[in-house]
């Protein structure tokens, strides 16, 4: 995407462009690793502040996994938790003035391809490869192309849903800031963008917090449901 809302190339390593998306992802990874270390460093039976928050989070994710995948699939909880936490933090990165990595199709497609591979790997593993492949010809052979189309549509819609929501928010937040900036210079006649103070907060709450957290939850939930459908 030329110009517009694409990520800026931060620097190059051996001719490979490293975009803002990659640097922000590294930063988020570092923050999450640091958080995990801090939260689990001195664990006590009666949890204190940071451990308390973490326990609520872990309990919630375990409960969600158990509810949507069943008790026997609780082993998926760590992956789903990682997914939900990473996407949520990435989506709300805009609040801290960073460009959300999930506003880049490369990130969202990487995540949805992981989901796609997991669906089919675990499907083939639990039903046997042959039986699993035979499932594509059900209820009758004529539906084979339709079934394959449906399977391919899953990662596409998963990736674009996340991307579309976040990039949509990104564009509208940018438009609002520039509109408020030009409004304050034309109405007040000063070059200080006074209207940019406070007013955009509402937009941030809806597009960054509401949409961001909702979409991370939806991405992880859909991954869980699709995998558990493939398993049994």
């Amino acid at each position: 995407m030329e110009g517009g809302f694409g990520p800026i190339v931060a620097f190059e390593i051996f001719g490979i462009p490293v975009t803002q998306t990659v640097t922000t992802t590294w930063f988020i990874m570092a923050v999450l690793i640091l958080y995990s270390y801090m939260a689990t460093r001195r664990m006590t039976t009666v949890p204190r502040t940071l451990q308390n928050v973490t326990e609520i989070l872990v309990d919630g994710i375990n409960g969600l996994t158990r509810q949507s995948m069943g008790d026997k699939n609780i082993g998926f909880a760590p992956y789903m938790g990682t997914l939900i936490i990473f996407i949520a933090v990435a989506n709300i990165a805009g609040l801290f003035g960073l460009r959300p990595p999930t506003a880049d199709v490369n990130t969202t497609f990487a995540l949805s391809i992981m989901t796609f591979l997991m669906i089919h790997f675990f499907g083939a593993k639990s039903q046997g490869t042959w039986n699993y492949l035979k499932g594509f010809t059900e209820p009758f052979t004529l539906l084979l192309p339709l079934n394959i189309m449906g399977e391919l549509a899953t990662p596409i819609s998963l990736a674009f849903r996340l991307f579309g929501n976040i990039v949509g928010g990104l564009i509208i937040v940018n438009l609002t800031y520039s509109a408020l900036g030009s409004l304050s210079s034309s109405l007040l006649g000063i070059s200080v963008p006074l209207f940019q103070v406070g007013i955009p907060a509402l937009i941030h709450v809806y597009f960054d917090l509401f949409a961001g957290i909702l979409q991370s939850f939806i991405f992880a939930m859909l991954t869980m449901v699709f995998i558990s459908i493939a398993i049994d």
Partner: peptide, 10 residues
């Protein structure tokens, strides 16, 4: 509802 949104996103 998230699934129903797909066409809008496309």
């Amino acid at each position: 509802a998230a699934v129903a949104e797909t066409s809008g996103i496309l």
